[in-house]
Amino acid sequence: MSTLLSATDVVKHFRAGGGRAVQAVNGVSLEVMSGETLGVVGESGCGKSTLGRCLVRLTDLTSGTVEFQGQDITTLSRRGLRPLRPAMQLVFQDPYASLNPRRTAGDAVAEPLRIHKYGDAAAIRNRVAELFDLVGLTRAHLDRYPHEFSGGQRQRIGIARAIALNPKLVVADEPVSALDVSVQAQVLNLFADLQEELGLTYVFIAHDLGVVRHVSDRIAVMYLGEVVEVAEAEELYAAPAHPYTNALLSAVPEIDDGSGAPRRERVVLTGDVPSPIDRPNGCSFHPRCPAAQARCRTERPALRSVAGRQVACHFPISPGAVAGE
C-alpha cells in the first residue's frame, strides 16, 4: 500500500484576543495509505475538524507540511490547488448547512462537474443522474430543494457531490453525527459500499467510538490538538496503550453477552479538558491522567512506535510495552 497523504507536524493556530492563540492543532503527523480508512476520534474541540480541513487545505496551515500523492500542497494557492481538488474531497458534518438552500439537489451535485469542465450540459446531467443512483437517490430528487429532503438524504447529496469527480481521498468530517441512529447505519453502509466500488480512501472524523470502530482500518486518537495514539482499529479496542484512549474506551457502554468475558474497567477522568489557548506544560493530558508522573509535567512525549503502534506517552499501559526509554 502506498502513502496517499502524509502530514508532518501540522500546526494550526487561530488568533484569540489579547495576542494569544487557540492552538487547535498542535504538531500532528499522520500518514494515510491508499485504500484504507483512517478514523480520527476525540472529544469535541480537540481539533479533529480543523485537522481535516488542514489535510485538504481548506484552510492555511500555521506550520508543518501536507503532502498529497507525493506533492507538497502546504503552500499552494487556491488556484494552484484547483487541479488537485477533484482528487481530494470533503463531506461535511451538518447536512443542513452544507447545501445551499437556494440551489436544487441536482444543481449542487453538478457544481463540481461544472467547475472542472466535465462536459456539456447533457453529459453533466447524465453524470448527476448516475451519481444519484449511486448514492441511493432517485432521479425525481434532481430538481428538489434541500428543504424537501431528510437529513440522511441531504447527506447522500453531499456524498454524491464529493464523489462526483472520482476522488482518491474523501475526508468525512463527522458525516453521521447529525443523523438519527437508524439513518446513521444506512449512510455508513453507503460509505463502505462506495469505498469498495470506487476504491476510495477515507479520513473519517468522528466522536462516536462505535461509528469509528465500524468503519476504520486504523484509528488516530486526538486530545487537545495532538495525536496521542495511532493503531489498527481492533488492536486499539483490544488493548489501548495511551491512558486517554483507555479512559475514552471505558466510557463506551458494553453489553453483557453472557460469555463471561472480562469487562473493561471503568476509568473516570477528573477535571475538564484544558483550554487550547492555555495548554499545560509537558504532556497535555497529565492534569487528568491517572498515571501521571513528574516527567509528564515537564516533558512533552513524542509520538513513537511501541509494539506495532504509535503512542505519545512516557508510560504507555499496554502489556509488553517498555515503559519510558
Binding site: 481538488r85 461535511f92 447545501l99 467547475i115
Partner: peptide
C-alpha cells in the same frame, strides 16, 4: 462561515464563482 461556502471552495470554485 456556512459550510456550503466551504464546500464550494473545497470543490475548487474561484472567489468570483
Amino acid at each position: 462561515n456556512k459550510e456550503f461556502l466551504h464546500a464550494a471552495v473545497g470543490l475548487g470554485a474561484s472567489d468570483l464563482r
